[in-house]
Design a protein around this nucleic acid. Structure first.
Lengths: 293, 293
DNA sequence: TCCATTGTCTGACTTTAGTCAAGCATCGGC
DNA sequence: GCCGATGCTTGACTAAAGTCAGACAATGGA
């Protein structure tokens, strides 16, 4: 790993924890313990399960319970039984709590403005751009791609989202029933593989590998959630599948794609896939690719 | 102020405090209170005055004193009388303390490496570049430019550094005695102005304004410390002086510069100064500029 | 139906972080 | 050689943050 890159990251980490972190922690408490302030922020407009809060903030359940009671005593939140599971509690902001949150929002804006004050217009633009880039790449770096059963809840949700996107983007719509090229069990281990990309626990992408011959496999269902685009998720999914294919002893990888999916087209080219002649009768395919491993 | 820029900064702040900040604070404590860990980091290889630590970390003197005693009890640091002033205490790391610090260094490297792991080479490069840009601009934004007596300690140090840089860069060297165009009191209020740029309390740049006629002034001694270059310090100094000139009722600003100072040349052009004919007999000047206010 | 698991709550703690005021030695200027 | 200011230390606090174990109810699969 490049020494100068490590040094740059360390410098950045220190600057940012000391400058931004210190400001955030001092500014945003509004005379209230920081943990409570963070909680108000995290609860948001729609309410959350206590369970979710606990894992998101990484707090001890006893500690969190007390924080929640304290906010309730202040009239800032309400507690209700959570949906299906009678053990769960759902917290949501009261009117007063929302007002408090709005006040934090304003403070947060003021803080951001104070970081821009001394800069001129050109520098502000550059700062915003560079921050956007850092943000995107840090998030990209914390995406985890791992094998998952293709019929798990998250996997199904990804595939459904993928299919409805295809239905919206393909000229003649899309009907899974007409595309029998990859059923769930085709992509199940050991003859295939299905992977999910997760960002902070949420599924944000997927992809599958299906064995089609002794040394041939096919890539299917590569998809990225709209919220995670531009972060290289699809590329990582593709590379993970490719590595698995190598491990399975495959020598050739194939895939097909529709002309409407221009990003996919570009990705496959960039990753070394070359366009070949039609190799299947998928009614939705316009282009066929192959890569020798 | 641009709404989308504010939003970008808020998103960035949140991501970075939660991801980087949380990691730093949890990773780097090594079973020790965070405050102590930070102290070890801040003491560094050469040792520091307790006084300096206090202002750098913004700690209460009683609190800091106890932290220091605790580290001493653990055999990590030594306390000695500080140089000239018998009231001061100087702390330095023992062998054991240095080892501890090295362990923090390794952890910090590992943390940085973990942020790069999932990225490919191109993305790593982009991340490092963007982080560098964010760092530079955040630092730039926290530079403060303010009036200062041209004979204060910090002002003298800046001017001396400026003069020795000129001596090193000018073809025939530089001797202040031969340049009587701006003595300290020429730049003192109310007929002139001297400003210092500070970053975290350290002087990192300076510049002076000297009245040369009823409606004419001259900019002198604009300098940026090497550690703070590329952050727009000189530009801000220049703009501050220009604003002061306007307030003093001046209509014309002039300045001269040596051909060796190419960055200065570029800056003056960019800030709207136009090259004019020689207007003084400064032996070190090669170019003369003017700007109508 | 039983039972291990999960989600939440409560009580009883400890540690960390930080504040405030008083005290002592040293300094710098007069 | 006096005196107010400065640098550090000490004692006596408080609040925030966090841990751990036990209790209880709801859940979900055997």
């Amino acid at each position: 790993m490049d020494e100068s890159q490590l040094r740059q990251i360390r410098r950045f980490n220190r600057l940012v924890t000391r400058r931004v972190g210190a400001l955030e922690t001092n500014y945003l408490r509004r005379g209230r313990p920081l943990a409570e302030a963070r909680l108000i922020f995290e609860i948001g407009a729609d309410g959350v399960d206590v369970r979710t809060l606990r894992s998101r903030l990484g707090l001890d359940s006893g500690y969190l319970s007390r924080l929640v009671q304290s906010l309730k005593a202040q009239g800032l939140i309400e507690l209700a039984k959570g949906g299906g599971d009678g053990r769960r509690r759902r917290v949501s902001l009261t009117r007063k709590g929302s007002a408090e949150r709005a006040a934090y929002d304003r403070l947060s804006d003021r803080l951001a403005a104070s970081m821009l004050e001394a800069l001129d217009e050109a520098e502000r633009g550059r700062l915003a751009t560079a921050m956007g880039e850092v943000e995107r790449l840090i998030r990209a770096a914390s995406v985890e791609v791992a094998a998952e059963a293709p019929n798990s809840g998250d996997a199904r949700r990804c595939l459904d989202a993928y299919f409805s996107e295809l239905a919206a983007r393909f000229e003649g719509g899309f009907d899974v029933a007409k595309d029998d090229s990859a059923r769930a069990d085709d992509m199940a281990a050991p003859s295939g593989l299905f992977v999910l990309a997760r960002l902070d626990g949420d599924a944000v992408g997927c992809g599958g590998l299906k064995r089609t011959g002794k040394a041939t496999g096919e890539i299917k269902r590569v998809w990225t959630a709209p919220s995670a685009r531009g972060m290289g998720v699809a590329r990582r999914v593709l590379r993970t599948l490719e590595a698995a294919a190598r491990d399975m002893g495959l020598r050739t990888l194939r895939l097909d794609t529709n002309r409407a999916l221009t990003e996919a087209h570009a990705l496959y080219n960039k990753e070394g896939f070359r366009q070949i002649a039609r190799f299947n009768d998928n009614p939705y395919a316009d282009h066929w690719f192959e890569k020798r491993l």
